[in-house]
Design a binder for these strands. Structure first.
Length: 296
DNA sequence: AATGAGCGA
């Protein structure tokens, strides 16, 4: 961009007459802002000039480094690729210029079923009674122990024991403890899938495996681009994994750097902890420990 | 440094 210095000079401005607004008009006298990099270490250098309050020309050099760019995001391979000889349109570009660039546009990620979304409004809008539904309050009936009005199935104190079908419906007389058997629950004619049927071949008594909520392993110090499939790949070598979870910031969608892995078998979880705690993954040192049970 | 989500007869 050519700057017509001569025409500006005709204004015959004197330094003493300048107020703040006029000062901006003199920027054309300054060398242009220069951006170098980022280099292979992710370091970017910006050189710019401005006038200070006294009207002196000042050079400002700012170097910045994109967080974790070289460390976690770029593999050796990727750094290597940056050395490749350019071709096509890029062949004639200046060293620092880029044909592709990172967008600075802010993009909000929205959860499809976010609370407060329009989809759930029409029901109750303008009619507080509608919230109660036709039949009034919903009656909680636990499908595991048959207790009413107390808890949902997921909150049942017996949920960690055998499958509900096996202990409470298929063989109702086997139910013990404070809750008692399901008196008015279905006891006959209820379909029971083969996998859930007791008897020969089925697991019984002491063989019954506790459900796996317990074998929960917390993984911290994950790199921010580790996703659940990555965790699964890493942990599945130790045994059956029933669940992987990576904590994500609801607002930004970015990983919060920790997650959980649940194992079907406690021994597998234990081996995973022993092997993977302190393990270098994606250039970070993992911490792998037993998780304390989640609060409800 | 750090302990997870959502659903419902």
């Amino acid at each position: 961009m050519a700057v017509d210095v001569a025409s500006h000079a005709q204004n015959k401005l004197r330094w003493g007459e300048l107020d703040e607004d006029d000062a901006e008009d003199l920027d054309f006298l300054l060398p242009p802002r220069q951006v170098e990099g980022p280099d292979e270490h992710g370091v970017k250098r910006v050189t710019e000039f401005k006038f200070d309050d006294a009207g002196n020309k000042v050079k400002i050099v700012t170097t910045s480094r994109t967080r974790k760019l070289a460390k976690a995001r770029l593999s050796k391979r990727a750094i290597e690729r940056r050395q490749w000889k350019k071709f096509g349109d890029a062949a004639h570009e200046d060293a620092g210029s880029r044909l592709t660039m990172v967008s600075t546009e802010e993009i909000l990620l929205e959860k499809p079923r976010a609370p407060g979304s329009k989809a759930e409004e029409p029901k109750t809008a303008g009619d507080p009674l509608a919230a109660l539904g036709k039949g009034g309050a919903v009656l909680m009936v636990c499908r595991t122990c048959g207790k009413k009005g107390d808890h949902w199935t997921s909150k049942c104190p017996y949920k960690d024991l055998a499958s509900s079908t096996e202990s409470f419906i298929d063989r109702p007389s086997a139910a013990e403890g404070p809750a008692g058997p399901a008196q008015d629950g279905p006891t006959k004619g209820t379909y029971v899938p083969p996998s859930m049927r007791g008897g020969a071949g089925g697991k019984t008594g002491t063989e019954m495996r506790r459900r796996n909520e317990e074998n929960s392993v917390r993984v911290t110090n994950l790199s921010e681009d580790t996703r659940e499939p990555d965790l699964l790949e890493l942990f599945r070598t130790f045994g059956s994994v029933s669940r992987v979870y990576v904590a994500v910031d609801q607002k930004t969608g970015m990983s919060r750097g920790f997650g959980f892995v649940n194992f079907v078998n406690k021994e597998d979880a234990e081996r995973a902890i022993n092997k993977l705690n302190g393990y270098g993954y994606d250039n970070l040192i993992l911490r792998v420990e037993w998780a304390t049970p989640r609060a409800n």
